[in-house]
Design a protein around this nucleic acid. Sequence first.
DNA 1: CGGTGGAAGTTATACGTAACACGGCCGTCC
DNA 2: GGACGGCCGTGTTACGTATAACTTCCACCG
Lengths: 358, 358
Amino acid sequence: MTSQKATTPGRRPAAARTTSRDVARAAGVSQAAVSLVLGDKWRGRVSPGKAEAVRAAARELGYRPNLAARSLRMGRTRTVLLVVPALTTEFFARVYTGAARIAADHGFGVVLYPSPEGIGPARDPFDSAAATLDGVIASSMAAEALTPLRAADLPLVMLDSDPDDARATATVNLDIAAGARQLTGHLTALGHRRITHLAADVRSWTFEVRARAVTEALDAVPGTLLRRQPTALGVDAGLRAAHAALAGPGPRPTALLCDDDIIAAGACKAVRRLGLRVPEDVSVTGFDDLALAVAVEPELTTVRLPAEEFGEAGMRALMAVLDGRPAQEPTLPVELVPRGSTAPPPAGAGNAARPGGE
Amino acid sequence: MTSQKATTPGRRPAAARTTSRDVARAAGVSQAAVSLVLGDKWRGRVSPGKAEAVRAAARELGYRPNLAARSLRMGRTRTVLLVVPALTTEFFARVYTGAARIAADHGFGVVLYPSPEGIGPARDPFDSAAATLDGVIASSMAAEALTPLRAADLPLVMLDSDPDDARATATVNLDIAAGARQLTGHLTALGHRRITHLAADVRSWTFEVRARAVTEALDAVPGTLLRRQPTALGVDAGLRAAHAALAGPGPRPTALLCDDDIIAAGACKAVRRLGLRVPEDVSVTGFDDLALAVAVEPELTTVRLPAEEFGEAGMRALMAVLDGRPAQEPTLPVELVPRGSTAPPPAGAGNAARPGGE
DNA sequence: CGGTGGAAGTTATACGTAACACGGCCGTCC
DNA sequence: GGACGGCCGTGTTACGTATAACTTCCACCG
């Protein structure tokens, strides 16, 4: 019993890592004492002198606790899952960045929903992960991916989703509606009255809010003509949608209000392809303020979304939930960024609706 | 002995997960048998009937193995670290996507170097992670972040780095040199002789290769004038560098060969700001073929880098190393994508060097 | 008919950690 | 002077898994 069999079978022959027992031996204490000291729970249990000795030994030996063992013992993994539509989207890459930063501050890691092609259920993200997660953060744009998760009832923070969503433990939002209102106000203040909204045909809370806010804001301005042109995401889709909006029947819109910067970039191409100019003939606005917005010419008037802060706020909420504290559920402000892609409408362009006219 | 103490102290009161022992009880076998069956190691150890019973019970109970316990037992975590400069870069987001896909196929997870602001040692990525990683994939652009890793000697796959780098267990490359040659050839074939290379001032293998390849390719074409203008990364930096290159002393270059698409976008802005046109007066080329390349106008002639495949190849190499198999160390081909930002030089532009001239 | 060997299982063990339960020891108070 | 409680610590246990080592049974061969 006392002689320990050194034969450890079936294990990989890795360089043996230093364990808490090694530290204990070096410091002349028991392994329990090491755990107490390094876990900062030694208030009246270990003398300050020995505590210091333990810390010194740990430093000396370069001790790193084995996370697997800790997780097994504690039943918590200090790992959370971030579910987003795609990481190749700059916006969500930035959300991740912010979220990961806060998580790291709390000693947590972030794993990503590994679906390469957007939302599709290509692979069950919770296959083995569910056994290993402490919580989940999910964008409303990837909400469908959450259904497999219903089994495990993990704390769930929703990003930019319906506050009434019953699945969410907490919700953190961007003030998308305010952004849409500012954009609309910017255009009407410049004199635009015929505006076409290039609306992303993605079923998602965030786009529904945009559409509603644009409609309501324009309803408040008399004599405006709002049309809606559905579009898929991406430059090409935006180009096609804008082409349809500009070349279609009825009076030509003087402004294209696009649901994101990428669609807006496509819209700008469509405008020029029709022999028109941005912004002299047609104003174009984006949404998100991606790096792209200042790469194209003219630079896009858009709404800046604080993506990193968004991720940070979401992760802070999740950390609060995991700590049993009440979660802050803020709605983060957004900011209109006027740039070169908007200008007053051309002089010849009359109002959309003359008194009594159709 | 037979009566098990139910008091499990200091554990979180989580919903008790089903363990392999629960499955064993349900299937009427021992826990060891469950492990053998689900681990697919039962060839001559468990009868097919019982094996099927085990599988059924596992399915029925929704059994998910506890990864922490498995890691502790096996000494492997099935987790690898991906070290890249920044995830907000589309290129590396795509590398991640490809790498994560292959890793998932092998039952591995990918964690990211969590430095938010590029390479800086804001946080030691290996603080606790080193205890928990099976391997590392690193871009040469983030090679400095690797130094803390030297302690643990994990398998390391380098992406796009010097094949002689002694730290690497394996290296996977893109044929950057070929891309640079193709780009240079494209320009010279169009007739360009005065070319300025907007070279990223980032110390990195990949950019060194570009510079060398451009130089060598142009050296082979008589009568050319190559200049080099260093630039930081980003649209603004590219704009400033291009401005310097175009407005500086000496004959104006007829083509700007930029180290990436983002710099190229900035360069296009600079060209127009000087009252010139792309491509009629100045041709501009990019590198990477980001989404940006077709969002700007004119669309960028560039070199398409297979980012996802790159990540996949890197991860495949790492998986091979971890399996003890020989790793493939390919150099992936790249592809010239001619678009609207390049054209023959203006008729008035003479050759850079007339015979005998300076 | 004894021995051999393979199939079919089970029992036991260790991975490294956190924390409960216990046990001395000493000062103090009734 | 004995009981008590606060300090300082150690022994022990369990988390869930994978697998070595053992046991049993049975068929088959010499």
